[in-house]
């Protein structure tokens, strides 16, 4: 996924790097901020971060691929994150997962063809009292049942 960055994006990244340049161990906070610009980390952006912080590109790539919250692929307009913590699992998150998959015709970690939804698992978010729990973009849904899925998804169509 190589893509040219716009001048504006290059400047934004440069500003982030400047802010952290003198701090020890700043790679992860920098990557968090850069990802918030694109929603993922394009190759070109990773290279700019590497040159800017004076770290080998391979090392940056190693860090990006190690942590699950860093993405190297663009995601859909809405990211559905279904919690797969123990409490959610015990309370039927798998049924909810299957329902979403069949409604949207995608499997976990895939994006719908129209670029609208990406489905992901999240690690326990600690909202165990509301299991099964999921978020769509900034919206949160607790005690989700299989039969609720269609109604919830229809809000985003």
């Amino acid at each position: 996924m190589s893509s040219k960055l716009s001048t504006d994006q290059v400047q934004q990244i440069a500003k982030i790097i400047d802010e952290y340049r003198d701090q020890q161990g700043s790679l992860i906070p920098v990557l968090h901020k850069v990802q918030s610009i694109f929603g993922y980390l394009p190759d070109e952006a990773q290279k700019q971060v590497a040159y800017g912080l004076g770290i080998p590109v391979a090392e940056v790539y190693g860090v990006v691929t190690f942590y699950t919250l860093f993405n190297t692929e663009p995601s859909g307009q809405y990211i559905i994150e279904l919690c797969m913590g123990t409490a959610c699992y015990v309370k039927g998150a798998v049924d909810v997962q299957h329902e979403i998959e069949s409604q949207l015709g995608i499997a976990i970690n895939e994006t719908t063809k129209d670029g609208k939804f990406t489905l992901r698992f999240s690690r326990c978010v600690g909202a165990c009292s509301l299991a099964p729990f999921m978020t769509i973009g900034e919206d949160v849904y607790g005690r989700v049942k299989q039969e609720d899925v269609q109604r919830i998804l229809s809000k985003y169509h």
């Binding site: 906070p29 990557l31 190693g62």
Partner: peptide
Amino acid sequence: RVGAGAFVCGEETALMHSIEGLRGE
């Protein structure tokens, strides 16, 4: 320091590498 989604970073040596900006191994 904010993590980036790696369970193993709860292990103390891995956590410290993550603070250093490295892979949390």
